[in-house]
Design a protein around this nucleic acid. Sequence first.
DNA 1: AGCACGCCGACT
DNA 2: GTCGGCGTGCTC
Length: 798
Amino acid sequence: MIAEVIVDVAAHPIDRPFDYAIPLHLQVLVEPGMRVKVPFGPRKVLGFITAIKETSEFDPARLKPIHELMDVVPVLNDELLEMAKWMKIQTVCFEIDALQVMIPSALRAKYEKRFVLNAPLEDIAEPLRRYFEKRPFVRSQDAVEVYDLLKKELGRGTIVADTDISQQTAVKKVRMIHITDSLEKLESIEIRPNAKQQVKLMAYMKNHTGKAIESSRLQKEAGVSLPTIYGLVEKGAATINNEESYRDPLLEATIEQKQSLKLTEAQQTAFNAIERSLNTPKTFLLHGITGSGKTEIYLQTIDQVLKEGKEAIMLVPEISLTPQMTLRFKERFGDLVAVLHSGLSAGEKYDEWRKIQRAEVKVVVGARSAIFAPFQNLGLIILDEEHESSYKQDDSPRYHARDVAIWRSEQHNCPVILGSATPSLESYARAQKGVYELLVLEKRAKNQPLPDVQIIDMREELRNGNRSMFSVPLAEAIRERLERKEQVVLFLNKRGYSSFVLCRDCGTVMQCPNCDISLTYHRSSELMKCHYCGYDEPVPHTCPECESEHIRFFGTGTQKVEEELAKLVPEARVLRMDVDTTRNKGAHEKILSAFGEGKADILLGTQMIAKGLDFPNITLVGVLSADTTLHLPDFRAAEKTYQLLTQVSGRAGRDILPGEVYVQSYTPEHYAITLAKDQLYEPFYDQEMSMRRASGYPPYYYVVNIQFTHEDLMTVAGYADQSVRYLQSQLSASTIIIGPSASLIARVNNRYRYQCLIKYKKEPKLADVLQQLIKIYRSEWLKKGATLSIDMNPTSVM
DNA sequence: AGCACGCCGACT
DNA sequence: GTCGGCGTGCTC
């Protein structure tokens, strides 16, 4: 028997199956989807078995045997193995990358080089001996100081090099105490009356006969120590057993179960449409304005799917995967829900994943990668906020969860629901063409009016001599809320707002020495940092160019706004939420709950506050500058701005108190801003579509972004140029190729970056042509130190 | 991607 | 004369 193995090496020439002999003792155990340790050249690596067959094209005499089987149960099922092949073609990635992204990171291999003793200890050089006294091997990283000695022994063969492969996190085991179910047995046990601890424990046990309890919990509940437990175990009152367990992030919380809400008429119509198609691979676009009750439709549809004995996946953007959100699912589906988000440790994610694999749960709520949940009997996939760019992974494999969802829906004959208040133009266009079925919710569920949105012309403010970042009306409105004891959310578009350092004498802006980008000032660490390569240096006191002392910090990060706010309304209690204040685990929810409890008057933050914020006392939302996303050199700039403004305005007036929104802009007449004011999606869609048509961008054209990097500017420009000429010669005449041109950030980490853009409507040869291009790169440019990366359907083209 | 093999310069 | 630099070629 022969196994085809995709080996854990992400490199072009290795991106294909390698055949291995299956040793006799493993032949009854191996299955496709299991992980194996295999010899690969001079080393050992992990790999995935993708197929089992009887014969190999490869010279049978040169076949190597599988070294070790890592799983007893496959970690990937046939569907996922098949999907990896599909992803490889769709996203132009290595098959190994596709396979790896489907399993929890805890199962990914950890490689550790080490030196293993291969002769009696006395045979090796004396200074080395102490390293091998305890164990017959030493980790490479622990022996750097005797590297040369080791090398000599390596030459003599008294020591051999080896790679230890282990997975990152194992199954958690706990000590379970099984109390005997026989009361007579307990009563027959004699305890000396002065052994007070044992008396206490015995009393507890008599009340809990036949129960199994984790030892740490028993210690807490009975108020005794571990030796006491062991004492009674010896006397036969209980048995101890190490058992597999799950790490439970919500351990102590008891969640009250809740019933379905009554659907409004519009909700009911949408629900019925989906219910009718529960066993068809159909995609719905659920377009409902903010607050229209999409979540309730999701919940009830999932309920329906569970009743049919099937499973459901619910994807949400990472950023809105808040405790509020997950709670709502736990309330409805209890223990049948697994939650996967970035706040969990690798071990916790692994445990949630095992619950899915073992079919102990029926619903998964999670971010992007939860789309790979190994369900066997999928009945429904939902993508909430389907327009969110976080559904596209921005490194290999550059997959879009929406595409994977639709692919899976075809495998399982189940529907996909794409939900959004501001659908992506791609999805809405497909709905218009009838590829997706459009479902619309026009009213808010509780019938609240949309918040009143004011657009403030900041040019006017400037003309009137107001140079601060708060317009007069906004400042006025903030003061008003403070008096009324209502809450304010201030929103700052982070992009384009990083604080930099400028010399007022010579105009120098501090740049990263490795990248063509200015350094960002971080007050918490007093460092200037580069966000692209990680370079940092202390904040200078004089200008590095002209030594002038007149340097100052520019830009308006949230910290800067906070300072200005303190001048404007000194009495206000302000909470700031940005990357700096949410770095620690759980900080995000802490800030939100503090705000929810009314511990602050103003919440000031970036993107991350745009979602999931649902507090009744917020009556004012201020957008400090709507322009920052609007003027980015990207075809999605207007779409993103519209989505953001709609999203942010939706935070105000979600309950009884009416909400008001102030949007400050230097281009207040732009359609993305004026149409977001009243959430006029259709007119926005029409307008933006005509822009896309004129400029040849999605949904009218598909886009591929190809990026080249090299240490040398002329070299990379040359390769990019050759590539474009090759593509032009191979692709059809109607396909447009833009570039090559230097990337927006032309140098990162001392490597120059070039890119080109392919825009096409129909290009059946595309996958093949791209593979050809990769071949050229592999045979000629790779060894010269160039990199090439391909992004199919990029979310942005900057 | 690693790792070994292989062919040319500065050291014991 | 050897240690070691990194070019190039292979991995079932």
